[in-house]
Design a protein around this nucleic acid. Structure first.
Lengths: 383, 383
DNA sequence: CTGTTAGCGCCTTCAT
DNA sequence: ATGAAGGCGCTAACAG
């Protein structure tokens, strides 16, 4: 009788996929019947009839264990779906195999590409990645560091929001002076001696500016943001290129934002353009600012490059398909992320070996000027 | 004599900023002199002359402590720069205040925007975020889950790469059936009963397709990728719109990739266009595919929308400034991330209370069709 | 109000 | 080859 009903149900199940739901409920029930608490080495030991130490040896792969014991243990491990508790391991080993990443905002493709590379490289080398955003706020940054520190991460990769002239109080110093292996990315600080992996911002800006000058532009507006070494170096490169071509840099052509957001890009573009009708070119110093700049230019119905020449920074996939394709300074985000991670893990390991740290202070990659179609020779002045 | 030299150094320091480096070295030295090992409650207790329990009470803010003892402890805490060891806390509490996030690839803006919102919401509620990429590979996904599980995370937010027809083996079930509070995002699975937060993909695709049909298009190519519920639902919406307007969906107009990359977008666009000269519109189902599609269209020197009408999916900031601005189906990534996180934390807490889980199975947000200028009425047929 | 103490799960030395 | 036991840093129940 019962088997008959089972059969009936089976055939109905076949016919009506919706009844598949029955299986769902079965699966759901499992959750309650399965003992909810974590399987530990102790459980394995009891069930396999050996000591905890033996189980530890099998799982950790050290010491010597009879093959019979080993077999028994492994069988039970599988049966009980045992997964070691990393927290307890960390407690013992004093390392968590975790690295912390602190950036301005993951929503910014520049950072998310870097973090992507960090995660990939970390995973390859056995490290997990914890992220936190600072929103470019030094207070938040300190909070992040405190949290990460309390979580006993093995190392940190950070694009710091601190400014080059920051003076740290005693409490903060702990987090910024090698109490944990640290690699800085993108932004350097003169008073810290940790490794920094970054792009040659100075020369990148220099090349782009020179390119514009050589096309005949003299009045070049520049839009920057975030009060960091990165932006300052770019501004310096820009000024240097101007001076080397006997053009006096003018402060009124320079706009410097707080957070380098799209909104700031919009605002600065319209301000610059409205206040300085003599500008023939604009240079925006990161992807968000470029986006904002383009929005405003679109709204003002200016056409690129006939009305205005444009150079951006941070290549994004779309720069090539925007119309016209944008001339851009590019940096290799993947490389920054990958190298920073590799170096950080080297430093972490060298600490274990009691050998000394790397000694490297800066790893600098080239910025590349990708010339597309957003710049034109300077137009004849309309008197 | 000595003060004289100090003075001299000071004046030189002022004159030559480079000598600021002297301070760097001082700071660096600190690292070695400072005891490197972690300050613990024990240290505080000893130095403050009280018991560990009292220190615990002060720091944890429970029980009652004399204000004198409290003061002493707080003073030492500050002096020694004590930061609690979360690992040890987690060991005791059985919770890590950490949530794991598993997505395809952080490099994809869709995911990085979601993760950004998750991090922000998590931080607000006291949770740290661990990320891992699956590269849309189910095997990697299982590895990620295993790692996260071993790290004792309190909950998971996952955009699973599993396919709707996946059958899980016994070992995997553990990770996919509520052994940890889980919220799925973007992709649902019929055989799991956890909460899923996602966009109404079906209706989004339906609306976009209908929009094209109403402009007179009958032959609409569609480019999808990743074998997930998400993409399937979009295809279904597309087909449904066609059928409701008495147009028979044609398989040759549908291309389905593996990873929904820019490269796949390029390839499928040129294949579709070359094999089907009768296509008058193209619909690409995520940001990467849109980008690839635009690249190819640009290379083929086709102009939008006069040669070809275009609808994309996943609004990105640049869609509005591309020329012409792109008509797009949009989903609210921030909302998905925020709500998923809030709900997850609710579930985590409801588990503590022994009260039951939420009972919600789906939270679905609208997809919005943003009409810009990349679609035109269907051209008169040649011949 | 305060101190003592027993674990959390794992690793590892020491003894057998 | 194996088992017993101590301890990582913190919490909290219990005893004073």
């Amino acid at each position: 009788m019962r088997s008959c009903i089972e059969k009936l149900i089976q055939s109905i199940e076949k016919a009506l996929p919706i009844l598949y739901l029955r299986k769902v409920f079965r699966m759901g029930d499992m959750r309650n019947t399965e003992s909810n608490k974590q399987v530990t080495i102790k459980d394995i030991a009891k069930k396999a009839g050996v000591s905890q130490a033996t189980v530890g040896r099998v799982i950790g792969g050290y010491g010597s264990v009879s093959s019979k014991a080993k077999e028994k243990v492994l069988k039970v491990v599988k049966e009980l779906n045992y997964v070691p508790n990393s927290i307890a391991q960390s407690m013992k080993n004093k390392r968590t195999k975790t690295i912390g990443v602190v950036v301005g905002k993951l929503g910014n493709p520049f950072f998310s590409e870097i973090v992507n590379a960090i995660e990939a490289t970390g995973a390859k080398l056995g490290y997990t990645v914890v992220i936190s955003n600072t929103d470019e706020d030094p207070k938040k940054e300190l909070e992040c560091l405190r949290t990460l520190y309390s979580k006993q991460i093995d190392g940190i990769i950070i694009a710091t929001t601190l400014r080059p002239d920051t003076v740290l109080d005693a409490a903060s110093k702990k987090f910024y002076s090698g109490s944990i292996p640290t690699v800085y990315i993108d932004r350097e600080l003169p008073f810290l001696q940790e490794l920094c992996v970054l792009t040659d911002n100075y020369f990148g800006a220099y090349k782009a500016t020179e390119y514009l000058i050589e096309m005949g532009h003299r009045n070049i507006g520049i839009i920057a943001g975030t009060n960091t070494s990165t932006m300052h170096r770019r501004i310096e490169g820009y000024k240097r290129a101007l001076m080397e071509h006997n053009i006096e840099p003018q402060e009124k052509f320079i706009r410097f934002g707080e957070k380098a957001t799209v909104e700031e890009g919009r605002q600065f573009t319209s301000e610059l353009l409205n206040n300085n009708p003599d500008l023939t070119a604009l240079f925006a110093l990161n992807n968000q600012l470029v986006t904002g700049m383009l929005k405003t230019i679109n709204e003002m119905k200016l056409s690129i490059p006939s009305d205005l020449s444009i150079v951006g920074w941070d290549d994004f996939e779309l720069a090539q398909i925007v119309n016209p394709p944008l001339t851009m300074v590019t940096q290799d985000t993947e490389k920054i992320g990958t190298v920073a991670t590799e170096k950080l893990i080297e430093i972490i390991n060298s600490k274990d070996d009691e050998s000394n740290a790397l000694g490297e202070r800066r790893i600098v990659f080239n910025a590349h000027l990708i010339i597309r179609e957003s710049c034109a020779d300077r137009q004849v002045e309309l008197i």
